[in-house]
């Protein structure tokens, strides 16, 4: 009996060591199965502005407005936060409560927890449902790939990047996106409202 149990344990750990993704999968498999095209199939460990660790898949359960930014970005990123806020403002109280906003930084090397907290305070973000998060550089590349965002680090530390506001449904599937900045995209708002329907 025992040798076989021993073997079984070894086999399990072999598979587990084989890839972080497998690990994430077994963890996520605890809930109902994730749809194949859910973004949460990739669920790295992330840290928020208050230093708390969480897995990306923890966001599952409510629609999420997600985008990517970085602190030193003088040009587009402040506009991004404004646009997110204005988009939120176009919803009613109930819909707002049912939506989380997640901003992931391109620049984990410079955007540490303290920096993220500083942004949250300065821009007066409602942290009951807004999260600013950082993760390791390899995971940043994967999150961008999964969301379809392009970015490129420049030698001076700045980033070129495309900008999109992406709406994930409660199961993490991409329901829509908009690249409109500085104004509220009416069609996108409509989409958010539809996602919010029970």
């Amino acid at each position: 009996m025992k040798p076989f149990l021993h073997l079984f344990a070894i086999l399990i750990s072999c598979f587990a060591l084989g890839g972080g993704i497998a690990h994430a999968q077994t963890a996520a498999a605890a809930a109902a199965p994730l749809p194949g095209n859910s973004v949460y199939q990739f669920s790295p460990v992330m840290t928020d502005q208050d230093g708390r660790h969480f897995a990306l898949a923890d966001k599952r359960g409510k629609p999420v407005l997600v985008s990517m930014f970085y602190n030193s970005c003088q040009f587009v990123c402040p506009m991004l936060i404004d646009t997110l806020r204005d988009t939120e403002a176009a919803l009613n109280q109930e819909q707002r409560k049912n939506l989380s906003v997640l901003l992931v930084t391109f620049d984990p090397a410079r955007d540490d927890v303290a920096t993220l907290k500083g942004i949250a305070t300065k821009r007066d973000l409602d942290l009951t449902h807004w999260t600013l998060a950082r993760t390791d550089a390899a995971s940043v590349r994967k999150i961008a790939a999964v969301l379809g965002i392009q970015y490129r680090r420049l030698p001076n530390g700045d980033y070129n990047h495309t900008t999109a506001l992406i709406l994930l449904d409660a199961e993490g599937r991409i329901a829509g996106s908009t690249a409109k900045l500085g104004e509220v995209d009416a069609d996108f708002v409509k989409l958010i409202k539809e996602q919010g329907q029970p």
Binding site: F75, C77, R152, L154, T163, L181
Partner: peptide, 11 residues
């Protein structure tokens, strides 16, 4: 179209 690629435009 600098807005599209945040600052530097397409490479």
């Amino acid at each position: 179209d600098k807005l599209k690629f945040c600052g530097a435009g397409a490479i």
